[in-house]
Amino acid sequence: MRLWWEELKVAVPLIFHGNPYLLSIIWFTVQVAVVATVVAAAIGLPIGLTIGLGRFRGRRVLQILANASLGLPPVLAGLFLFLLFVPQGPLGGYNLILSKKAVFIAQTLLALPYIVALTAAAVQGLPPGLLAQARALGAGRAQLYALAVREARIGVLAAVIAALGSALSEVGAIVIVGGNVYGFDQTLASAILFDANAARYAQAIAIGIVLIGLILILMGGLGVLQQRGGGIRLRFRSVT
């Protein structure tokens, strides 16, 4: 415990010191988390809704794959992207390896399964009569999806929260594809890894405290929205 106390005594002042390095990785972490979550939601919601509401052959297989992808090890995803991005890889010409773009892509890829699998599960739990009635009264696909998202909003928000949590915390993939370059493409989580490896425990603890604060602020905000449940006014313009 003495070691903890000693490191904490050094770490806490670092947080309030206005350290430019710390500020830069906080900003980059927020950017990565928000962009990865928004992009994953934009791609994953339609996929999750299609899996959850669709009536096509192979839907169950897709559902199983979506659920299985929740267990995808981040380092494996990172390795996969690394082999795509290296100059000899299929996407080598885009100069993505060791770039910030690679970090965004990796975190988006890791957030995507949460959106897809949890959205599909959330809309599958809706009363089947409501969606069938919407179909029977002529609702188009966009109207049906809007209805499903609105009705399953608590579950869909849970998917977004899980995706955001993943984007804030995962390090395995971004370290491989981004290189965890000091002050360049580090997130708070990867910076902790960097400092811990260099035995700068006080700095790692300081960054960890900031990361936990950021998680509490972002996830807490979404959590409050989710808890309000029926009080949230999600409005979708119907397609007429």
Binding site: L130, A136, G138
Partner: peptide, 14 residues
């Protein structure tokens, strides 16, 4: 003409 069906389950949106 157009057909409207009211299904058996009276499920309503929240």
């Amino acid at each position: 003409g157009r057909v409207a069906i009211a299904l058996q389950a009276p499920d309503l949106a929240r």
